[in-house]
């Protein structure tokens, strides 16, 4: 297993939880402290801290060491990797099924240039008009 796969695993595991996704969503709007993050959830700060640790370990967020309030901020690099994984696999199937549709279309039109019916000629027999003009005397 490559390091990249291992990273992806952590990312997907971290994203698998709705609370953690909500936290990320909140952080996408700007950094926040644990207190601020805990606010909208009916959860203890400890519970939120546990989620934050998982997000941090997955590289999805970082926390400032220096400041006492240790605000959390989102790190998009790993999200980008996850999105890339999804996009790559998705694109493969999209292209494949596009081509399948084209193939189905060719199956549906079986030899369109079959023996074409002889159409009756539309030419009207032109009536011979007398060329003779009668001159008025």
């Amino acid at each position: 297993m490559t390091i990249v796969d291992e990273d992806l695993s952590l990312t997907f595991a971290a994203l698998a939880d709705p609370t953690r996704r909500a936290i990320l969503s909140r952080l996408a709007g700007g950094e926040a402290t644990v207190n601020q993050l805990a606010e909208p959830f009916a959860m203890t700060q400890q519970a939120i801290s546990k989620h934050l640790k998982i997000l941090e370990r997955a590289g999805l967020i970082s926390r400032t060491r220096a400041a006492q309030r240790r605000p959390c901020q989102i790190e998009t690099e790993h999200l980008d990797a996850a999105a890339e994984w999804i996009g790559r696999h998705r694109r493969q199937w999209e292209e494949r099924y596009d081509r399948l549709d084209e193939h189905l279309a060719t199956l549906r039109r079986p030899s369109q240039q079959g023996p074409s019916q002889q159409e009756p000629t539309q030419q009207e027999p032109s009536q011979q008009e007398p060329t003779q003009q009668e001159r008025p005397a």
Binding site: R21, L24, S25, T76, L79, D80, A83, I86
Partner: peptide, 10 residues
């Protein structure tokens, strides 16, 4: 759905 979600975050 993660893809949509991630795109939204981005």
């Amino acid at each position: 759905r993660f893809g949509v979600y991630v795109a939204m975050l981005a």
